[in-house]
Design a protein around this nucleic acid. Sequence first.
DNA 1: TTGTTGACCTCTT
DNA 2: CAAGAGGCCAACA
Length: 128
Amino acid sequence: MKKPGLKKSTEKPRSLNKEYSFFDNVYEVVRQIPKGRVTSYGAIANYLGTKLSARMVGWAMNAAHSAKPKVPAHRVVNRNGMLSGKAHFATPTLMEELLAKEKIKVEEDTISDFEKLFWDPAKELEIK
DNA sequence: TTGTTGACCTCTT
DNA sequence: CAAGAGGCCAACA
């Protein structure tokens, strides 16, 4: 039988439980975002308890394209409310279009009234 | 296998 | 006030 390349000394939760990965948590939260609302990578990371891993949230979005169902990554923007990841969408204007359908105003690739539309999972979902 | 990059955020100088 | 570096986890070469 083949032995897993897992070292007892160094545990690598890489493929240990993909269903319990940090990414899935992000997808769950992003999918919980109500329509017409937006959130930030840091907010999600903070909700997960690892605000320092805000980069992972963005990276998770990269895999969101293969995530099922599709993750509304267009509702996730950076701390400044800027569509930093718009360039990573199918089209550079797709994100803006999707947000426009959500009745969200976007100017200069930045969400207007971002503070009002801001949806904090840590508060809405309530932290235990 | 290791090393580097990545849709970020926060602190320090 | 502004700019730079650090740090996290995971995937790709």
